[in-house]
Write a protein that binds this DNA or RNA. Structure first.
Lengths: 224, 224
DNA sequence: CGCGGCTTTGATGTTCATCAAGTAAAGTGG
DNA sequence: CCACTTTACTTGATGAACATCAAAGCCGCG
């Protein structure tokens, strides 16, 4: 009867806005699914029939364009990964795939819509959560694209350092993916990483990154 | 008792989702306001207490950053100009000002929230409309920033041509604003416009623009 | 009239993309 | 397990796209 998603933000929306007897319905309609790294969770162009939420792990949101693949955002747990425009369209305009082995929660979109129709408190919370998620992605994107290459790279490194809560970590995306994330060529991304290494701000052996001088890295991030 | 916003999308949301007796409450709580060109409608950093909708005219959404002013989008009638993150935060993270003399409709945000809480159908429609508006802005932005300067300029010209439904029009923004919209320097924006003029694709005397060769302009827009 | 802001053009420098080449790592079939 | 292929990564050289600096013309406004 109790869901095991102890820290689940979506659950908290349901629980604080649903009567006790409705919670059970939520629990039973919810499906949990484990996905492996590199698995595609959402495919651009597919019909939107589910409401998907990342419980554990790390994912990337990306879209394929004539100019190549473009990473829109990296999704952490407690981000509603399918929030970006779930209700806007019939079909996904982006894909989502797992960067690490992850666990997702899946709800039928109909169920969520039903809740919105029946439960104002739920609707209100959902709108707020959706807006926050979209805002974060959008304004984050705007901020990033005001910076030059080196600043964006510094941002990426600081971002993952924040996620892993450590100055030493394995970056979960390839150089190519970094280039798709920052919107520049792979060669120049590598050059920027090399520059940071040569200047003694980071150590970088393949995917393993160590931040040596976080303050200077933050300054580069800030002042582009 | 009847609202005069005959074509108002917001009104249509209310009307199709409210019982007749509630419509009156909506009408009375709604305030219509005329604003002059260059008037600031929403100011970045201000508390969000109202729900604002563009009934007539043209506005720009922009934000001020340490690197200068950045235009996020141009808002036409039937765009919910305050939709972008109304519920996400306490304060606006962007400004809105009128490009032309415009008419806006203003609702107390409390009133809208109340409707969301009380009326599921209204909530559902609002979510859908918000998502669509945000999607359009966001993915439009992503598309634009994959293009080179000349393609973005072509896009801007085609955009306003679409708005005014004519190949001859006065562009409602300055060269500087175009540069803030496409995210490049004013000098290079001017050079790009000059190039289009020299190549015979457009005529351009100050703010007056005439599209001569729409097909080629579209090709430039499309293929960056 | 003259001041300040907007616009335009030219010259020059920086940032980034492209092309080319080579190394390392990782999967693939015999 | 090893040769083989493929994919990811790295560095250098060159060129294109864009920013910056400088100067001058235009235009509206006090």
């Amino acid at each position: 009867m109790t869901c095991d998603c102890e820290l689940c933000e979506l659950k908290s929306i349901f629980f604080t806005s649903l009567e006790a007897d409705k919670v059970e319905a939520y629990c039973s309609s919810r499906a949990q699914r484990d996905v492996n790294a590199k698995d595609v969770i959402i495919r651009q162009g597919e019909a939107i029939t589910e409401f998907i939420y990342l419980k554990e792990g790390l994912v990337k949101l990306y879209r394929d364009t004539p100019q190549g693949s473009q990473i829109i955002a990296i999704g952490k747990p407690f981000d509603f990964v399918s929030l970006l425009s779930v209700f806007a369209d019939e079909r996904y305009s982006y894909s989502v795939s797992a960067l690490e082995d992850s666990t997702i929660c899946v709800l039928k979109l109909d169920q969520v819509k039903k809740q919105v129709l029946e439960n104002g408190k739920f609707a209100m919370k959902l709108i707020t959560t959706m807006n926050r998620a979209t805002d974060k992605i959008f304004f984050g994107y705007l901020d990033n694209h005001q910076k030059r290459l080196i600043g964006r790279i510094a941002g990426v490194i600081l971002f993952f350092s924040e996620i892993y809560q450590s100055d030493v970590f394995d970056i979960p995306i390839s150089r190519k993916e970094i280039s798709q994330l920052v919107g520049m060529t792979i060669e120049n991304v590598i050059r920027a990483i090399s520059d940071l290494r040569k200047d003694g701000l980071i150590r970088a052996y393949g995917k393993n990154i160590e931040i040596i001088d976080k303050e200077r890295l933050k300054k580069i991030f800030q002042y582009s």
